[in-house]
Design a protein around this nucleic acid. Structure first.
Lengths: 239, 239
DNA sequence: GAATGTTGTCTATTTTATTAGACAACTGGC
DNA sequence: GCCAGTTGTCTAATAAAATAGACAACATTC
């Protein structure tokens, strides 16, 4: 039931198993978990080990323990559509959550090879590079690095910082609409820097979404690599 | 550089960091890794700990160590498009890999709530449930559970087992074409059962893709939950 | 073929994770 | 109020991970 030569602490495997029960729907919000003693028996570990795992889930807000009564499931992840026109603020408004993009940093740098290819510009051309965090009701959902070609988007970072929305910042520069050109998805564990920004333990799973946006003339205007906390969102493909 | 209260063994964190360098392209196939002693210093761990991490990467085929010379990067992930008409065999043929779906199990069961909703049928209606593994050149890429409504798809499993392709199995039943209705994506760590099927260590990251297919009349014919080994594929969204 | 730098292997020690047991604190049902 | 069942906390013992050091084996360069 539990793999012991794998680099994952026993308590972590217990936590992951319980989390899988939750995310898969075998345990629903409000359900009571099996008692710690039973979980310990099921996984073949000590009750203390189970407790440590549950403590981690509690810290992440997935469960809540009540002395004398039991441990109960909290949570439900945000469904996040990825489509031709993905607008973070609109998505969140639809699910009834308060959303705002936060500008972590903005700088002018030369484009490296990857960004140059993504934006269809010369390697070394000047770009505006922003790091941003998007939250739903204060909880970080994604941490992103977004790049724009210069000089066209000079000052975009200040508009974004003021408005908290990329769509609004674009409007300030006279871009009324834009759409998605390409989207790529993979997943891995968060590195320490990402983990710090997303307020998660390093080693938690993040979905990596690399996307390119174009304006209505088809000119590439934006290349983004977003890292979504995998257990806080479920992506859905729109068409 | 290394988080020590997280349930991830130090050697595992080293392995993950090196793996991230590889998957992100900072280290390319053929490159030599920094010597074990340097890695130990960089991560602030003992050389033995580094060695254990590298041993795991070697076992998974990501690196290869040569005594006296160094440790070198192997691998390159498969790019897997998700679109209106995703056909596994065609994708693999295009990248020049030999591909075949393998039927692990097939059974007739009553639809649970989730499957019933996905297929637009009554809960408890009979369905055909198949578990399949898809490989590229023998290496497992995905492990999937696929459900079809009965009696329409009676015997589909035998056609699939014979042909190794869902598209061909459909043709045997007179379905010439089909398309994707919806796609949902998230990620988590593999549980032991999945890990065994995919030939990976439990705790490795899998991409979970839940999709529904419809025939040309728009009738739902198939609900699938696939688990892709995250470090063996990169998904790309087609439109 | 000698020097240097690398991976491979062994032993011993220290630190951390896990187990074991006991009991307190609290809840819900009777 | 009492009882059975649950989570919370503490102490101690044991198992496993990680460190430390030394040296063998091999590759590459000069």
């Amino acid at each position: 039931m539990l793999d012991r030569a794998l680099g994952l602490a026993a308590w972590r495997q217990v936590a992951d198993a319980v989390e899988a029960d939750i995310t898969s729907g075998r345990l629903k919000p409000g359900d009571r978990l099996a008692p710690e003693s039973q979980l310990a028996e099921r996984f073949g570990v000590n009750r203390h080990t189970v407790r440590r795992g549950l403590a981690m889930l509690a810290e992440r807000g997935l469960v809540r323990a009540t002395q004398g009564s039991g441990t109960f499931v909290e949570t439900a992840p945000v469904v996040y559509p990825i489509g031709l026109k993905t607008r973070f603020s609109e998505v969140m408004a639809k699910v009834g959550r308060e959303a705002r993009g936060e500008l972590v940093s903005a700088e002018h740098v030369p484009a490296d090879k990857g960004i140059a290819e993504a934006l269809g510009i010369e390697k070394g051309s000047p770009i505006l590079q922003m790091h941003t965090i998007y939250r739903a009701d204060g909880v970080p959902l994604s941490f992103a690095r977004t790049c724009f070609p210069l000089p066209r988007f000079l000052g975009l970072d200040q508009h974004f910082a003021a408005k908290g929305s990329l769509t609004k910042a674009y409007k300030k520069l006279g871009i009324e609409d834009y759409k998605r050109l390409s989207t790529r998805i993979t997943a891995r564990m968060a590195d320490p820097a990402e983990a710090a920004q997303l307020d998660i333990a390093p080693g938690r799973v993040v979905l990596i979404i690399s996307s390119i946006n174009v304006d209505l003339e088809g000119v590439r205007i934006q290349a983004t690599q977003s890292r979504f906390v995998a257990d806080r969102v479920e992506l859905t493909i729109e068409r």
